[in-house]
Structures are given as C-alpha cells and as structure tokens.
C-alpha cells in the first residue's frame, strides 16, 4: 500500500519552501490521562507553509499532540501558541484558534443529517457569517477542487469512504484555514480509495498550506513533507527531513518502526 502511494503521488513537482515565520510553537507540553503520561515535554515549532508528517506506533501520543493544537485535548503543563494566540483555558482564544485551524479526522465525521453542500456551508455561514449564496459558491468551488461537485446534493451516507474524506477536506477548506491538521486521514479507507484522498492532500501541500499530518503513508511523507517526526511513548524521538529520516534514521526505535512498516 505504501509503495503504491509513493509511485502514484510522486509527480516530481518541487513544493514551495516554507517561510521562517513561526506559526505553531509548542514548548514543554505535558499531558496525562490519569496516571498515564501521554505527552512528555513536547517541544515543536512549525513555520508557516511547512508540511510535517508525524508517525509512530499506536499509543505514542501523535494523535493527542495534534488534537492539542486545536484544543480538542487539553494539556496540563507547558505552552502551546498557534498563530500568535496562546491556547489555554480562555474560550475566546480557543475559538479564535479553531477558526484558523481545521482538522480532518480518521472517520471523516461528516454530519449525516445534512447534504454534502450543507456540510460545507455550515461553518462559513455560522462562524464566518457569510451570506448563504456566497457560502454555496465557495462550497462548490472547493467541491470541484476535490473533484466531487456532482455529489453536492447527496447525503454523506450515500458516498464511498474516499468520497466522504474528500468532502471532509473540502469542508475544512471552506473555512479557509491557515493550518490544517490531518489525523490518520486514510486509515479508515479501503485500499483503493487511499490514492484519491492522498492526491488531494498532495495538491494542498503543493499550494503551500501549513499541514500537520499524522499518517503512515510514507510515500506521502517522502513526496511532500518538509520534516518527518517520529514519536514513541509520548516523546518526539526523531525529527528530520524525509530523505535523512528514511535513509539514515538515528534512533533505534525509529529504525525498528521503519523496518516494520516498510517491510511489507
């Protein structure tokens, strides 16, 4: 599966380099679930336009980390700043961050009682206070970009998994976010649908979107990532540019992980 993704998405187009402006700063972030220390002293800075792939074994805290970035999870100590806004308990700050940061989920989380179009226009209308007509135009624009505009009036339940995930990406794009978080976007898909979703993500990456992506699609990582992060047991174990990361992993745990996931 990984190999296929590599071949099909490798188009050789060079992605634009990220800027030097820091857009996400995580410093000494810690999180516990009861006694379980799920994030341990995480330090991470992300520049605007940077594309980061986070991988690691399950339970390593990688999903928790990106869920902290839009406050779907709280953290107990340390500091997370997103787009210059400190993410703490302040509801105003949290809402301000969420307006700029969108997340694509493993299980799509489309709203089943609304049509595809309504799924897309909901947030622009209610959060951005956009007139309905304009929101519809915006939605159709992004549906065309993910090549699914003919399904606009269907309900999510009538679409395939791959189509649903593309709708979910378009839904996030309708908020015109500055940062997009992907939480294992292809893990719940049937193999033949992975490509259509990855293709959309690669296009996004090449347009300079700031992306943090938890995924095991190493082809995607090689093609678009500026940095690959390997997490294990709540820590960032290794962080490197993809070439370096895949060719010369430094840490033993990274080596073991890569050998396991690239072996098949």
């Amino acid at each position: 599966m990984t190999a296929t993704a590599t071949e099909t998405t490798a188009t050789g187009v060079v992605t634009p380099p990220p800027s030097n402006e820091e857009v996400i700063t995580v410093s000494k972030a810690n999180k516990w679930y009861g006694n379980f220390h799920v994030l341990k002293d995480i330090d991470l800075t992300v520049n605007r336009g940077e594309r980061i792939v986070i991988c690691g074994p399950s339970g390593s805290g990688k999903s928790t980390l990106i869920r902290c970035l839009n406050r779907l999870e709280t953290y107990q100590s340390g500091e997370i700043t997103v787009d210059g806004i400190l993410l703490g308990d302040d509801v105003k700050n949290i809402e301000a961050v969420r307006r700029e940061v969108c997340m694509v989920f493993q299980h799509f989380n489309l709203f089943p009682h609304m049509t595809v179009l309504e799924n897309l226009t909901l947030a622009p209308i209610w959060v951005r206070k956009m007139p309905k007509k304009q929101a519809n135009e915006l939605a159709m624009h992004y549906l065309e970009r993910v090549r699914i505009s003919e399904q606009a009036l269907k309900f999510p339940g009538q679409l395939s998994g791959g189509q649903q995930q593309r709708v979910a990406i378009a839904r996030s794009l309708c908020m015109q976010p500055k940062i997009m978080l992907f939480d294992e976007p292809t893990s719940a898909l049937d193999p033949e649908m992975v490509k259509e979703v990855l293709d959309v993500m690669v296009e996004l990456a090449k347009e300079g979107m700031t992306m943090l992506c938890v995924t095991h699609e190493m082809g995607f990582a090689k093609e678009v990532a500026d940095r690959v992060i390997f997490m294990d047991a709540g820590q960032i174990v290794e962080m490197a540019e993809p070439q370096e990361f895949f060719a010369n992993p430094k840490n033993e745990r990274t080596k073991l992980f890569l050998s396991q996931i690239l072996s098949h």
Binding site: N70, R71, L72, E95, R98, L122, W126, M175, L181
Partner: peptide, 23 residues
C-alpha cells in the same frame, strides 16, 4: 450521537451552542 460529531463542529470553529443546535 458519536463524539466525533461534536469534535467536527468544534474544529470548524462552531461554539458549544451552535454545535448543539445545528449538529
């Protein structure tokens, strides 16, 4: 209603009451 529905509303910037009412 799955928790993911609420999270999706949150991550789109909808407030608690908006998510409740609309989703």
């Amino acid at each position: 209603v799955p928790n993911g529905q609420f999270e999706a509303g949150n991550s789109l910037g909808l407030s608690y009451w908006q998510s409740m009412r609309l989703i």
